[in-house]
Design a protein around this nucleic acid. Structure first.
Length: 700
RNA sequence: GCCCGAAUGGCGAAACAGGUAGACGCAGCGGACUUAAAAUCCGCCGGUUGGCUAAAACCACCAUGCCGGUUCGAUUCCGGCUUCGGGCACCA
């Protein structure tokens, strides 16, 4: 695995030099779905844009040209086909680069041992795209030339370490004047660099310092001179197609999905090999092929690779002797359809009709690290299941939420500057703070000596900053822990764990408990009166408006935005407003009862234990679990007055409060009065009234 | 190297379609209650910028990573950076 290769190109445990070898592998043809996977991103309205953008780039659709270069004196093939998205630069081709695994390179190496060595040298280094892109551009001449399809010039063919056999045709035309990788390679090996594109704005491009990669107009390109990108593309495509040397081609960056793994623990790939090496699938009625667990481990390879009981297979009908594939599937295969199987537990087949009944998933939650690989395989597999009739939807999940990690403070000691760090749990440490609450230093409780305050990091065993939620639940209760988890950050951001924050939330829980009891005690039990809006005081009207504004906000935050933190904050604000509401009239008691019932209903999904009990205490005979989320009373949301900010030249200079029904002229007059001292001696150039928000006066 | 994000007080954060920056909470400070402590309640809480001051109140200015732009108005939009995080196909 790439992860097990050290940066020096050796195995992380054995230290052995890593070699690359070609082995037969099974692939899923995800590229056959590339266009659909791309197109349907537009229908995923409730997926984050960042994920959709990453998938678009990953699929990487490009429109280009496949161009044939005739070979000179080659016994292997007549022509070499390259793929390019920049045919406008064709006249700047000074050589051709092929992948080291390209058939042409292999053929050339057959009769040339030193070339074979040089080619295998080229493939040294990692396989990760990041490594290939960052590695020095290297190449080796194959000693073969090709004929430029337009100029007729002979250009040499090289193998290069940055050309991938799996993309396009495994061969690219090299235009060092206008491609940075080609430029670096040409500069290294003294290959010619010519300019065939000039900047569109007729400025000069300096290709001696690096490639000029922008679009521009053709120069030094004969009859194509002066053409811009698209015109040059079309002209080249037309002319070359007419002589059978080019075809338009859409390519995708997306590669087929290699699913073979040489590990034991996995799902065996259900394929059989005939004596002649050809392969057939295991018959449907014999699926699934179950991994044998009664096996003997001997050495480093998977035990089923040498287990005759597993390998040998006799066709029950014909008696033909076959052997089983011993590789197992990539585990991404299973994670691509578990959600569907979960919808039909116990089914004797892969899925039954229940899967289609429940799917697609309403809300799928996972980390952003899965943005391209898992989430693309997942979409691909759903389309496969659709195409074989197992499900009828096109996509597996209608809404996607990418949640953040849980992080916490770290504390450590390091004996020597390059020595190992020993970490301490936040619970073992006492932090000293200055008068503003800034952390100054920390000491270990056990010995009273200093420890270093480290950065806030993802909770992990190695950093010792993990918190067992059970210990917090034991101490504060599950409702408090759940409320804190929801309150500390929106779900798509990382959540910083803080025990003082949990304590603060516990205070809030106790406060609600106490306030409800005070409300009930003042009334000697639950209240039955109904709030009478027509007889309400201004303060009562205000609280009731606040209540229904909170209900509307919490409904939106929880139901649509999934921003539980602001929902809880809105309930806290309402609680603070109730606390300040000192009115013991019957109407006020009825209003308070309405508030507490709504708060209990709104908090019940997050703090079910607390709210279950409070609901009963508030005199309700139903179970709170059976209740609907409260809805705001539109009438209660209307306020008579509105407060507007008044700006002068964009700076806040005053506030006005006036009837909501006020006409713009009235508003403007009130605003001018409120900021009169800023308008003295100035000419008012413009007044902008933003309904319900502010008045902006522009003066000079 | 390429792709996708993020950056706001001492801290976690809020500002939902460009409109009063810092809601809500944590920490801190001051006070009430108490013999005392805990718990609870009340108040303050961006700026070692300037003005007026004994001090405050108050007023002005500055402030959403940095530089520039658009706009009456920018945390929000645009261009250019910096730093941090995620991904780059065998970690899953």
């Amino acid at each position: 695995a790439n992860e097990q290769v050290s940066p020096d190109g050796r195995g992380w445990r054995s230290g052995a030099l890593v070699e690359k070898k070609e082995i037969p592998q099974w692939f899923f043809k995800i590229t056959a779905y590339a266009q659909e996977l791309l197109d349907e991103l537009d229908n995923l309205k409730d997926w984050p844009d960042s994920v959709k953008t990453m998938q678009r780039h990953w699929i990487g659709r490009s429109e280009g040209l496949e161009i044939d270069f005739a070979l000179v004196y080659s016994t292997v093939a007549e022509k070499l086909t390259v793929y390019t998205t920049r045919p406008d630069t064709l006249c700047g081709v000074t050589f051709i680069s092929v992948a080291a695994e390209h058939p042409l390179a292999k053929a050339a190496a057959e009769s040339n041992p030193s070339l074979a060595v040089a080619l295998s040298d080229l493939t040294k280094g990692g396989t990760a795209e990041a490594e290939i892109e960052k590695a020095e551009k290297r190449g080796v001449a194959l000693g073969i030339s090709a004929i430029h399809p337009i100029t007729g010039a002979q250009v040499p063919i090289w193998a290069a370490n940055f050309v991938l056999m799996g993309y396009g045709t495994g061969a690219v035309m090299a235009v060092p004047g206008h491609d940075q990788r080609d430029w670096e390679m040409a500069s290294k090996y003294g290959l010619p660099i010519t300019q065939v594109i000039a900047p569109a704005d007729s400025a000069a491009a300096d290709i001696s310092a690096g490639a000029f990669t922008d679009y521009g107009v053709c120069i030094n390109s004969g009859k194509y001179d002066g053409l811009a990108f698209q015109a040059a593309f079309d002209a080249m495509a037309g002319d070359l197609a007419a002589v059978g040397k080019a075809t338009r081609k859409v390519n995708f960056r997306l590669r087929d999905w290699g699913v073979s793994r040489q590990r034991y623990w996995g799902c065996p790939i259900p394929m059989l090999y005939r004596a002649d090496g050809s392969s057939v699938p295991v018959p449907l009625e014999q699926l699934p092929v179950v991994l044998p667990e009664n096996v003997a481990f001997s050495g480093v390879t998977s035990p089923i690779k040498s287990d005759p009981n597993f390998i040998n297979y006799t066709d029950p009908q014909t008696g033909e002797k076959l052997t089983r594939e011993t590789d197992t599937f990539d585990t991404f295969v299973e994670s691509s359809w578990y959600y569907a199987r979960y919808c039909s537990p116990g089914a004797n087949t892969m899925l039954d009709a229940r899967a289609n009944h429940w799917l697609p998933i309403d809300l799928y939650i996972g980390g952003i690290e899965h943005a391209v690989m898992h989430l693309l395989y997942f979409r691909f597999w759903h389309k496969i299941m659709r195409d074989v009739g197992l499900v009828s939807s096109n996509e597996p999940a209608t809404k996607l939420l990418c949640q953040g990690m849980v992080v916490a403070d770290t504390y450590f000691r390091q004996e020597t500057s390059d020595g190992p760090k020993s970490y301490f749990a936040p619970t073992e440490v006492q932090v000293e703070r200055d008068s503003k609450g800034r952390a100054l230093s920390a000491t270990l409780l056990k010995d009273g000596l200093a420890v270093t305050i480290g950065p806030v990091e993802k909770m992990s065993k190695s950093k010792g900053n993990g918190v067992d939620p059970q210990s917090m639940i034991d101490k504060y209760g599950a409702d408090t822990v759940r409320l804190f988890s929801m309150f500390a950050a929106p779900p798509d951001q990382s959540l910083e764990w803080s025990e003082t924050g949990v304590e603060g939330m516990h205070r809030f829980v106790k406060r609600i408990w106490r306030m409800v009891h005070e409300h009930l005690n003042a009334n000697a039990g639950a209240v039955s009166e109904i709030f009478d809006a027509s007889a309400a005081s201004a303060e009562q009207k205000e609280l009731r408006t606040q209540l229904h504004e909170a209900i509307a906000k919490v409904g939106r935050d929880v139901g649509e935005r999934l921003n539980f933190n602001t929902a809880i904050a809105a309930i806290m604000e309402l609680t603070n407003a109730i606390s300040k509401f000192n009115d013991e009239s019957a109407n006020a008691r009825a209003l308070r009862q309405e508030c507490w019932q709504a708060i209990t209903l709104m908090l019940a999904p997050i703090a079910p234990h607390l709210c279950h009990r409070l609901w009963q205490l508030l005199g309700q005979e139903t179970l709170i679990l059976d209740q609907h989320f409260p809805t705001a009373d539109a009438g209660a949301l209307l306020r008579d007055d509105v407060t507007l900010a008044v700006q002068v030249n964009g700076k806040l200079r005053g506030q006005i409060t006036l009837a909501k029904s006020s006409a713009n002229a009235e508003i403007e007059a009130a605003a001018r009065l409120a900021v009169a001292k800023y308008l003295e001696g100035m000419a008012v150039k413009k007044v902008i009234v933003v309904a319900g928000r502010l008045v902006s006066i522009v003066v000079a």
